[in-house]
Structure formats: structure tokens, C-alpha cells
Design a protein around this nucleic acid. Structure first.
Lengths: 368, 368
DNA sequence: GTGAAAGCGCTAACAG
DNA sequence: CTGTTAGCGCTTTCAC
């Protein structure tokens, strides 16, 4: 049933088996109605018995379009998880997995969702999806490779250097995700970081009336962080808080670092709110609070940004600004399709709305 | 920078720009060392200035191999999540996301991991990955489409009907995942369900000395469930428990249904252990226990199977048999590559080891 | 309705 | 080392 595969049958094989020309075989596949029923049936029968599957490559070559869109993700590198304390029983490892610190974060990388969204949208439009990670030194090869096989390419921010992107953009449309690069001339789909941050902070300051605030920022070169920081400042100003009054610390978007920073912070005068530039940092702050005996939200409220899964499972559960990752993927595919339909015209930047999720770490109100 | 794309440059363009033949351009790309340095430089310069990206399709057609492997996932259908209680502030939705029942499961679908594993292995071997979901009535089209563009195809169990699979298997190697279909003549990569279940149950019966057991099974037609049930029975027999003494209830692998079943079960004589055929069911059992005031693990121990994320966050945390999903994906790509190298030879079935993770719902020992 | 023929852009002998 | 020349398998006019 498997083995012994010979050269796959081609249109020619089907054609002669059905006693027609290859053009007719092609028609049966692409425009069945343009072929007389009897002929069509014979061809289809031949296809079945020969086990014919048309070559997508030949098709793409002749048809000048591939029907495939590419998605370039940041390289997810393997994080070998080491676990202690194992016994082996009948060939099956048995591990004591209690009492370990619950792993820092869910293994659900955010781009899984982007990927699912992209796949869904591609499928709905009859397109196939090719994924690759732009990791390692072989990145150039990969990118060119993928670019050569697809009709359009979606690239997650910072996955590929601009120069490379510009190179492939001369062949196919490229849309950049989660990074508003309109200025660079690419189409882009991104999330409204500033508005999201402005909104949570408005809640903290405006609705909850908190004025003693600390801000845990991300790496200084992060475009996301810059937008969020701007939203943060806007909200402060809007509510009459002097930005100079809030203490800003720069983390690395990581949980561990945030925990250190927060521990130091809590050693001094504890602010009434800690606003974080992303969820991982916020979780680190929660860690620090728990370790220090500071209560959340009673003593300090904490907010994050991203909407990662782990924030739904933390205690207290994390108030955050949720980014619609699935939508990002879908919008990316849509953008490619549109650009394919309208090759000319100025670059477009799509902004996706975010959503503030108020959970226990910073609830709707402070009473109760 | 974007717009105004004209027909992409081809080898011919590069060749004439560099004053060489197309063969030389091809050589610069494939076997750079076979070209004199001066020539090579001129060609590379032409490539840069023209923005040349070789057509993967033409390449695949001429070279008789695509360098792409396909991965067919079960259709992840959109689960539109509806949330109540929203306010809108400055264009950003603000949602009260407290007090909701924590969503039934992590959105981390298990095949995300399979996908990541496959991508990683493909990348390491210089292959690209094409993904598609075999959903809906257009499945045949999708499958043929993908099959026509790749060198080999990995298919997640039950995603594609056998007949279709057999059809495409005549063109390219197919490997079935998570379902030992050796009997059908396909290569397969699967997980050792029976051994895993046998091992947890040995722990429950052998080490913990529990003899009053209930088993929450999955759908009767699930091959996974059958293997696990067999492992369950083996362990019982091995430890001298009469399988006829355990009450077996059939669920649907879903959390809600399991909760119902467990609630009914707990209304009668509460068993000392509930072994479940998958994690979702086990979580449902935990739900029922919590609602009924039955303590886990003091009154009843509960075990699951799969190792999904949600089991790490439940309370108590779930003892389970963890399946190496990432490895599944990697092994799938490996299997394809091997089959490509050895087209003939009998179908091979790869079995991946599982791991028992003892967590609080069924700890290593019952004292303390 | 159906067939003949010209490519699509590239690789891979085969000559020089 | 480099150029010539066949195709790879399919789509697509253009005739019939």
C-alpha cells in the first residue's frame, strides 16, 4: 500500500488512459463544466485508478500564482525542560511533578494563535499556508526559499532584517505584523498598544483614583514598549498626574527580571499601583508581592499587557490588555490578498483593537 | 518601496545583467564553489540590484523535489468566545473578566506543539513546512492541493479518510500521527498509550494499594482510548484486581460530560480512585469532586492522560501521562525523510515513550 | 467541446 | 569553469 512508489502519474498518463488530450484533463480539473459529461467521467475515472494528484509546482509555474501565503515566525528555540526526581517503571518514566514552581509561563507561545488565525483565513480563501521560522544564520536562505514559493508573505515583527525584507518585497507583497512599519513602506497589521495602555491606566487613575503609580517598562528598544509607554503617559496627563511623579523601571519583558525589580521597589515606599508593559513582567511583580507579603489588590493593584494564558491562571488572576492574536494572523492574510488584488497604491496600516480584561489583580472597583 | 511591482526578475534577467548564461546563475545559487570568484561576484551583484528571488516552483519542477513537507491538522474550528458585561472606553472594550468560570481549557491546542516540533525538525533539515487543516467539505481539495506541492505528508489521526490518504500516498510518502495504522500500510508515529496507562494504574493499584477504582473512558470508537483501556486492564490483572470489579463509564473526552458522569458516580459509593482516559475528563472529575465536597486526593485520587497545560493549573494539579507532542511532530518529519530515502521497504511504526507526571491529584504516596 | 502548441523559470546533463 | 539544450507538469490561447 505504501512502498514501491514509481514516478507519479502526470496529466499525460491520465490523458492517454482516458483517451483525451492533456488540455481536456486540465479542464476537467479547473473548469469541469466546460467538458462534456461523458468525457469528464472518463477522465475522472482515470484520475482515480491512476492515483493522479496534480503537481502544485507545475501548476504554479504555468499559472503564475501559487495559491500559497507564507508566514514567518520568530524562531521558537527548543527549551529542553529538565525535570528532577525520576523513577522508571516498565520503560515509562515516572516523575514527581509536585511542588515544583509552576513553570514561569504557559508553553502557549503567542504566535501559535497568530498561526491559527492565519491558517483559518487562508483556508477560507482557498489558500495554503507555509510557515517557517526566521532563526539562525540560515535565515536568509529560508526567507528567500519561502518567498520564492508563495504569493505573499507575512512577517512577524523583528523576525527578519529590513534589508532582506526589502529584497523579497520586490518579488511579492510583504506585510509586517505587530509593528507599525508603514514608514518603511510595508503594509502592516498591528495592535493599538497606546490606546490599550491608555485605557487601563485611565481605569487605574480615573476610576480607581490611584495616583501613586510605578511603571515596569520593557527593553528600551522595543517598539511595542514605546507605544505603550506613550499611552501610559497620555493617560496620566489626561487625569492630571505628573508623569515625573511615577517611578519607571526598565525590565526585559521577562518574569524573573520583573520580580527582582519589584522586590527592590517594594523595599521602599510601596506604590498603590504597578502598571506593567507586558504580562510576564506583571507576573513577576505578583511573584514579588507574594514573596514580600504585599497583598494584591488590597495593597497594590497590578496590570499587565498581552493577555497570555498564564495570566488567567495566576493568583490573583491578572488584569491585562488583551491582544487579538488570532485576528492578527487573519488580518495579515487579508492584507496580503488585498495587496495582491491591488499591487499599487500606498502602503496600508491596519490597527486592531485591544480589550481590557479586568481581573482580580486590578478589579473594576476597590470596595467589597 | 512596496507598490508598483513589475514582473519579478528571472534567471534570464540576472544572466544578461551579469553577462553570463543562465546555467551560471543557477550554479552560483546551488554550487557557488563551482564558479570562478569574479563571475560569482558579478552574478551576486546582479541578484542584489535586480532583487532576484528564485522561483521555488520552477525549481521544484525542474529538480523533481520540492523541499517541502506537509502537515495536515484536524480543523481547528473557530470558537468565538463570548464575554458578558462590557463597557467601552475610548474605543477600547473594557471587560469584567472576574468570577467567570475559568475557561474549560487552555486555548493551547495540542497540535500547536506538534506543529512546532515539525517546524523545528524541518528547519534543521533544510525543509519548509506547509500546514493545512483538513476541515470541511473542501477537505479533498485541500489535501490534494497540499499533496501536490510537497515531498511528503504527515497527517494527524482521523483528519483524513483512508481512501483519500491512499490516493495521495501513491504520489508521496504519507505518515500517520498518533494512530498506529501500520495495518493500513502507512508509516506511523504514535505514542505508547498502553504502556502509559499501565504505568499510572500500576502506581495507583501497586504502589498506593488502591483497589476500588472507576474508569472514565472516551468515545467507544477512539483508537487512543482502546489502547489506554487495554493498558488499564493489563495493570489491573497484573496486580490481581478483577477488571469486572471496576465500574467503567464512557464519556466523550470532554470536560462537561465527565463532570456529569462523575457527579452521578459520586452519588453512589465513592471509589478510591478515578482513572480517566484523558485530561479533559479528569478535569471534569475534579470539577465534580469540588462541587460535591469530595476531597482530592484524600477521598479519591484522580489521574488523566495527555499532559495538557490546564492540568498544570488545576487545583489540585492533575496527575497525568504526558505525551511528547513536540516529539511527535519531529518524528513525523524524520519518518518522511527516511521514507524518501528508502521508498521501498515495509511500513514502519515509531512508538514514542510517554511520561507519568505525579502531581497532587494522585501523589507519589498517600501519607503526609 | 476538444486538441495542438507555446511557454512558465529553473536544473541538469552534455559539450566545449 | 561556462554555455547549450532539453525537459519538469501544467495552463492557456488559438484553431478546429
Amino acid at each position: 500500500m505504501a512502498g514501491q512508489r514509481t514516478a507519479p502519474p502526470t496529466v499525460y498518463d491520465v490523458a492517454s488512459a482516458a483517451g483525451v488530450s492533456i488540455a481536456t484533463v486540465s479542464r476537467v480539473l479547473r473548469t469541469p463544466d466546460a467538458v462534456r459529461e461523458g468525457t469528464r467521467d472518463r477522465v475522472q475515472a482515470a484520475i482515480r485508478t491512476l492515483g493522479y494528484v496534480p503537481s502544485g509546482n507545475a501548476r504554479a509555474l504555468a499559472g503564475k500564482r501559487t495559491g500559497v501565503v507564507g508566514l514567518l515566525l520568530p524562531g521558537f528555540d527548543v527549551v529542553p525542560d529538565e525535570r528532577p526526581d525520576l523513577v522508571t517503571d516498565g520503560g515509562v518514566r515516572v516523575v514527581d511533578d509536585r511542588r515544583h514552581v509552576t513553570q514561569p509561563f504557559s508553553s502557549n507561545l503567542y504566535f501559535d494563535e497568530v498561526l491559527r488565525g492565519a491558517e483559518l483565513e487562508a483556508w477560507q480563501r482557498g489558500l495554503a499556508l507555509m510557515v517557517a521560522a526566521g532563526r539562525g544564520p540560515s535565515r536568509d536562505v529560508i526567507v528567500n526559499d519561502v518567498a520564492g514559493r508563495v504569493d505573499g508573505l507575512a512577517v512577524l515583527a523583528q523576525t527578519v532584517p529590513d534589508e532582506l525584507l526589502e529584497h523579497v518585497a520586490r518579488r511579492i507583497p510583504v506585510v509586517v505584523l505587530a509593528d507599525d512599519r508603514r514608514s518603511h513602506g510595508f503594509d502592516s497589521v498591528s495592535v493599538d498598544n497606546a490606546a490599550g495602555m491608555r485605557t487601563v491606566v485611565s481605569h487605574v487613575v480615573g476610576r480607581l483614583g490611584i495616583r501613586s503609580i510605578a511603571y515596569v517598562a520593557g527593553p528600551i528598544d522595543s517598539p511595542d514598549d514605546m507605544e505603550r509607554a506613550a499611552g501610559f503617559r497620555d493617560a496620566l496627563v489626561e487625569h492630571g498626574v505628573d508623569p515625573a511623579d511615577v517611578s519607571v523601571v526598565h525590565g526585559d519583558f521577562g518574569r524573573a527580571r520583573a520580580r527582582e525589580l519589584a522586590t527592590a521597589l517594594f523595599a521602599g515606599e510601596v506604590p498603590r499601583a504597578v502598571v506593567c508593559s507586558n504580562d510576564q513582567s506583571a507576573l513577576g511583580v505578583l511573584d514579588a508581592a507574594a514573596a514580600t507579603g504585599i497583598r494584591v489588590p488590597e495593597d497594590v493593584v497590578v496590570t499587565g499587557f498581552d493577555g497570555i494564558d498564564a495570566g488567567r491562571f495566576s493568583s490573583p488572576r491578572l488584569t491585562t490588555v488583551h491582544q487579538p492574536m488570532g485576528e492578527l494572523g487573519r488580518a495579515a492574510v487579508r492584507a496580503i490578498v488585498e495587496r495582491l488584488a491591488h499591487p499599487d497604491g500606498p502602503p496600508r496600516a491596519v490597527r486592531l483593537p485591544v480589550e481590557v480584561l479586568l481581573r482580580e489583580s486590578c478589579p473594576p472597583t476597590l470596595d467589597a
